[in-house]
């Protein structure tokens, strides 16, 4: 709860004028389950990267690198869509 704006500083109706502003948010607290990547099974098809609604899959050179757990809210769409079961889930404690 840092740097919260005062009411006079806000846009009318809470309108959000810029795109991609989820960069600012840490949603890790929303997660009930955490996706975990299994390197040995992964074929780097990057389907998880394309289906992730919050850009929480970090890629490089066309390969899976890691999950960004500050942006992952634990929807597990990646786990559902992975064709080779290279993502498992673990309950958050």
């Amino acid at each position: 709860m840092q740097n919260l704006k005062k009411w006079k500083e806000l846009e009318d109706a809470g309108n959000i004028l810029d795109k991609g502003n989820n960069e600012e948010n840490d949603v890790s607290g929303w997660r009930s389950f955490r996706p975990i990547h299994i390197r040995e099974k992964c074929i780097d098809c990057m389907i998880c990267w394309s289906v992730c609604p919050d850009n929480a899959v970090i890629s490089g050179d066309g390969k899976f690198i890691k999950f960004d757990y500050t942006k992952c809210k634990g929807c597990l769409i990646c786990l559902n869509e992975c064709p080779v079961n290279a993502i498992r889930s673990e309950k958050e404690k």
Partner: peptide, 23 residues
């Protein structure tokens, strides 16, 4: 312009947005 209207508010901003509407 691509903007978002009517977004969700938690306890951290709902009150401020209501205050602005009241004004």
């Amino acid at each position: 312009k691509e903007i978002t209207m009517g977004p969700f508010d938690m306890f951290d901003y709902y009150f401020e947005h209501k205050r602005k509407q009241a004004q």
